[in-house]
Design a binder for these strands. Structure first.
Lengths: 203, 203
DNA sequence: TTGTCAACGGCACGCAACGTGCCGATAAGA
DNA sequence: TCTTATCGGCACGTTGCGTGCCGTTGACAA
């Protein structure tokens, strides 16, 4: 964009990086609709071959573009208070997940995955499952420290936590706000927490 | 398909019904990929106008087609045992939701909704929210009969129940089997049930 | 410094689906 | 029987796909 008029024609890895960035920029501007290979090529001032040489399809390009920005802050803190740590992480990752450029790219991948089982599997493994696994690690530590009950299937608990948030983000029209997260954590702690087990879940 | 060679050209409502059925048949055969207006028109032996006169887009046609088959057994039974009633309904609606023709059509709508906020809202209101509301009705009755604790946000509970199942069905690659449903209900009853509140959730 | 060659941008192609316009045929209702 | 909206068929221009070709250019080795 801000290149000099006579910017030298870049090649190889430099072009690859530039193309990923262009894809993210375009996604942030126009959303998933209007995000296609020709548009990326036009925007980058590049022949289509230059893209197809690197990625076999738009989905592959989107996957790489998403990886480029979706490594941020995926790790939970461990302050010893599992509820507070989950809460902080959910609050942080919510806007990151919905807003540009991650939101549009994520939506694009989900759309294409509906007609492409292989992409669906890749998307699940590389992104959804990764988030679940980090969550599982954190709550497993909480189980070891006695914050959560022993006889609990935490793998499923992690799926419910992440699944509920993803459901809101990606399928429903509701927003994930602080109230949502608190309710989710109330339910989680009521079901799996060791403290105050004689009372019902807070509202 | 099985029409006589010289079947009279149908019009009006009869054609509408036939087109919806053709859409469902096609979806069951070829899935979401390959499901487009031209294909439906070819399959039905119909001009494209005949479709566009009734629906402004493929999404609108899919919505109507889904409504045609998604009215089945949405109501929960009420045997007085909320866990058993939820379990029965989840077991029943799972295959119905994933299998043809509902599965492919649902996937198609989700894909298109990713780039169409209006469709997204319609899909949420007309299908996802409807299922949540039926669930809410059933668990609200359970709250009145004392099966569930009083100070619980059941609206959110219904969202978690349905959201977790939808997450598996529509975003993950896992299947919704009996074990999943039992774990989900274990968690639900541990968080919101009045019985055995001093023990942890069953695994 | 020069030579080599893969990567590059630009252009064009055939394909498929979109949404629309026009035509003559037809079936439903007056 | 007459009228008319609906119908099937066909064609059009547009867009994006994925590929092929061609002349240029930048990186790297000699």
């Amino acid at each position: 964009m801000a290149d000099q008029p006579a910017a030298p024609r870049r090649r190889g890895a430099a072009r690859t990086d530039e193309l990923l960035q262009t894809t993210l920029d375009l996604a942030a501007e126009v959303g998933y609709a209007g995000l296609n290979i020709e548009a990326v090529a036009r925007r980058a001032g590049v022949g289509k071959h230059t893209i197809y040489r690197r990625w076999p399809s738009m989905s592959a390009l989107l996957l790489d573009a998403l990886s480029r920005v979706w490594t941020t802050d995926l790790d939970y803190r461990d302050t010893g208070d599992v509820r507070a740590d989950l809460r902080e992480q959910f609050l942080r990752s919510g806007p990151a997940l919905s807003g540009p450029p991650v939101g549009p790219v994520y939506r694009g991948l989900i759309a294409e995955a509906q007609s492409d089982p292989a992409l669906r599997a890749t998307l699940h493994e590389r992104f959804l499952l990764t988030v679940e696994r980090r969550t599982l690690e954190r709550i497993t530590r909480a189980q070891h420290t006695g914050e959560l009950v022993e006889n609990a299937n935490l793998e499923f608990a992690a799926e419910v936590l992440c699944g509920t948030l993803y459901y809101r983000h990606l399928l429903s029209t509701r927003v994930v706000d602080e109230g949502t997260i608190d309710q989710l954590l109330d339910m989680f702690m009521a079901a799996y927490g060791t403290a105050g087990r004689a009372s019902g879940p807070a509202v």
